[in-house]
Design a protein around this nucleic acid. Structure first.
Lengths: 191, 191
DNA sequence: TGAGACATGTAACAGGTTACATGATTTC
DNA sequence: GAAATCATGTAACCTGTTACATGTCTCA
């Protein structure tokens, strides 16, 4: 499911322009997939050349003409075959954890700054997902609702995880700060 | 924190060969960062050319000579400056969710197959992380322990999330299976 | 005798992004 | 009158992977 096949998938529900596809990537799919104009337009052209889609020109006055792309039977087959192909999950990458791995080379103020930045980032992501629910350009089907639900739970747990980490970092950098209900006996040595 | 800066970071704790760096990428960092030989060796050479690291050749008999790289003062500064640079989180990508978005074009058997594949993938990831704890080539510092803890909680929640999704998909595909609050009228085909 | 660890390296390819280029229309 | 929206497109670049190439030693 590279960009080409994702575009074909989006065309399954009807003809669309590159511009509209970009909006879908930025909204509905934004949480787990994305594409820039610099990849969308060349991909559409390439798909047309190999007969996966056909293009209909819609003449407009004042504005650039719209190029409306629709799936050919070959394109439909191509998409379904890609969709059915084995699931290959690309490795998880996390910029923040990479920095955390090297936190010992920073001072406490810097460390806590990065943790706050990350929590802010995750919170914004949560907010944007929550907004999506309100907007909802096209009615999502049952599975797209599940995508959304998965995303909501995912970012919620990510935020929880990050806050837990924040406390660990704070406790490390200033052990005297939060002496309240800490049960030394119940604390396990991680490792 | 691209590969170059991550490599410099790993050299902070002492000189290493490209081969050893690869092992670290595959084990300690494997959960959130990675690199292939095809990027490690050219990067080391490039870093040497611009004076970020220096190379010491260790002659071996029988085996290829080891090229042991160590940080120069310039390399140390370069790494610290990269580490302190603003946190830029690259967008979350998820191949499975992309497929889920298009699940309506599959039949129930195919859908449940993909969900099972994903759960298996996440479980394996969990197992590999748990093993890491046992192995632990180098003693991790406090923040590296936190990385590890974050990872453990992350995959655990991911697994929980995936199982919840699995139930939703099953309930959708066979509403009669788990009758709890569902008011669906039609009887399902048996078999 | 075959697999896997040790050890380095290159070339071709993949799969994108960013910045640039163009230009009218609508909205604040 | 500035900014955002509509609408398409190209070229240069980035950052990395995969596959190939080479060769010895060790262990089962």
């Amino acid at each position: 499911m590279n960009i080409q096949n994702t575009i074909l998938g989006l065309l399954m529900s009807g003809p669309k322009t590159g511009y509209v596809l970009k909006q879908m990537f930025d909204s509905s799919l934004g949480f787990f997939a994305g594409a820039s104009f610099g990849s969308i337009y060349p991909t559409l052209r390439k798909c047309e050349e190999v007969g996966l889609v056909k293009m209909d020109l819609e003449i407009q006055n004042g504005r650039p003409n719209r190029k409306v792309y629709s799936l050919t039977p070959k394109g439909r087959k191509g998409f379904l075959s890609a969709l059915r192909a084995d699931l290959i999950v690309s490795p998880y990458r996390n910029e923040f954890l990479t920095k955390l791995f090297f936190f010992s080379y920073l001072d406490a103020r810097e460390r806590e700054g990065f943790v706050r930045d990350y929590i802010r980032y995750v919170s914004e992501k949560m907010d944007r997902l929550a907004e999506l629910d309100t907007l909802a350009g096209v009615e999502p089907d049952a599975f797209q609702e599940m995508c959304y639900g998965f995303g909501i739970r995912y970012v919620r747990e990510l935020a929880r995880n990050a806050r837990k980490l924040q406390k660990e970092v704070e406790r490390h950098d200033d052990p005297g700060r939060k002496r309240k209900g800490t049960l030394r006996s119940g604390k396990r040595t991680q490792g």
